[in-house]
Design a protein around this nucleic acid. Sequence first.
DNA 1: ATAACTGTACCGTCTGGACGGTATAGTTTC
DNA 2: GAAACTATACCGTCCAGACGGTACAGTTAT
Lengths: 182, 182
Amino acid sequence: MPRKPIARDAVLDAFEALLIEVGERAATLDAVAKRAGVSKGGLLYHFPNKEAMISSLLERMDSLAALDIEAMKAAPEGAAAFFIKSSLWADTPLDRVFVAATRLAEVAHEETRRRFAGIQQQWLDVLAEEVGPEMAKAVRYMGDGLYFNAMLEGGAGDTEVKASARSADVGALLAAVERLRN
Amino acid sequence: MPRKPIARDAVLDAFEALLIEVGERAATLDAVAKRAGVSKGGLLYHFPNKEAMISSLLERMDSLAALDIEAMKAAPEGAAAFFIKSSLWADTPLDRVFVAATRLAEVAHEETRRRFAGIQQQWLDVLAEEVGPEMAKAVRYMGDGLYFNAMLEGGAGDTEVKASARSADVGALLAAVERLRN
DNA sequence: ATAACTGTACCGTCTGGACGGTATAGTTTC
DNA sequence: GAAACTATACCGTCCAGACGGTACAGTTAT
């Protein structure tokens, strides 16, 4: 039996981390390989080019998002509250891949933008079932706002401090959602 | 009297437009110069390096944001409603410079991130005066969400169609704000 | 008034470095 | 023995920035 392709996931994780922390520009093939503890040749063995690496990251995002949407539908506290809570930056695998992908979308990567739009639509559909189409939009924009801020902060500064500041905000948002529901 | 530096503004406008439409990566000095109808040498006469060009763009953002915040304070419909309406992408000078700057923040440009944080804080302060600190956050996150989406869309696709779809959303958000105010 | 000069506003070309990708030869692990 | 690598050298392209030069508006000296 051949050995397991451990480097593949390491490369994808490294790519993701660099996108989050230093942006698309600095997430070069050399930098990704170095961070993954892999040679450049090894990286290119798994991903013939950068576009292939991006595709794999987007597939990871899609599968994690699908899980999230299932969890959202089944959430006991309701889809809207679940959505707001999960929009907070919590360093989960979905959060990470989402912010990483945002960096690509910002660089005008069309495929990434399409995938985003698809996931956002799914969220909106689930929210609409619970609070109606109008308020669903209000809730989704709040969640988008949380992502927007997570994205702006990126990897710089004290992550702990910012995370706690942000989680205080979630309380305010949940209160707002509660008001909107009635 | 010396000639007027007409190229300077043209360069800044071109830089802004390219950031919005094709992202940071593609907003190279050559591309900016070409779009501005200026030679590369001419561009570098006004802005000794790319960083200087970015600084000027951020100054433009700060001054436009200051005007916006004054208008927000004086808005007859209230600061919150004004804020939501103005968060919609309307191709105003402030909208443009804001989205353009977002592209830079995405690339982990620290100074840009700081400026953003400052402006966001000012918005929050004004909103808090009207609807209290808790609901102010809900409103600001909605506005951020609108910017997030404007940013994701960028210059691609049919701008007209997207603008009208988004403006329908603003109605929903204003209704939500109205509910939150009570 | 006009020639000589000065400073501003540009233009066009070049260079050094980085980046994406290729190629190839060897090494480890199952 | 074959898949999963490492290591390194290399190529073409693109980009930021440097540099030397040009055009012209305004100023000064005669």
